[in-house]
């Protein structure tokens, strides 16, 4: 039975009318047309669907939408745009990290929440922070470099 609820996404409040058992990922993608978060497994096993819930990186694929009500949700679109990418997004461009791009939402969302907590991470810490984000194209080393670059920009800023 559809139920109407208010979701705070990327600093705006949206009213959605969905089955309360729907996972947040589907609401973001199908109802709010936010396509940053991706479906890769639906079982917290790949990280493609990562969003920020009150600033923390979590999977949106196993979060019943009603459990997200009242929390601040941020998606990739909330970080930056094509015209004005966030420093992390820019770092991913500068390092040419992307291949097929499907895992990249998860990489950027996880890395940006991580950097907010650990502004000066080591390479190993970055790798550990990203261990729940799978990439099949093999971008790993460039992604770590992109996060290092973003950290450097952050420290200079």
């Amino acid at each position: 039975m559809a139920k109407t609820m208010a979701l705070k996404v990327n600093s705006e409040t949206h009213s959605v009318s969905v089955d309360p058992g729907t996972m947040l990922l589907y609401v973001l993608r199908d109802d709010l047309k936010l396509h940053g978060p991706k479906f890769g497994c639906g079982l917290s096993e790949c990280g493609a669907c990562t969003i920020h819930l009150d600033g923390k990186a979590v999977h949106s694929c196993v979060l019943p939408v009603e459990a997200a009500v009242g929390h601040h949700i941020t998606t990739l679109e909330g970080l930056g745009t094509v015209e004005k990418p966030s420093p992390m997004q820019q770092a991913f461009i500068d390092e040419q990290a992307v291949q097929c791009g499907y895992c990249i939402n998860g990489m950027i969302m996880t890395a940006s929440a991580f950097l907010a907590q650990h502004p000066n991470p080591s390479r190993d810490e970055i790798k550990q922070a990203l261990n729940g984000n799978l990439c099949r194209c093999g971008t790993h080393m460039r992604i770590v470099r992109a996060v290092q670059r973003a950290a450097k920009t952050g420290r200079q800023a």
Partner: peptide, 12 residues
């Protein structure tokens, strides 16, 4: 704890 799951999972 740190040997288990992933950062996102541990956050939840």
């Amino acid at each position: 704890l740190l040997a288990g799951a992933s950062g996102q999972l541990r956050n939840m």
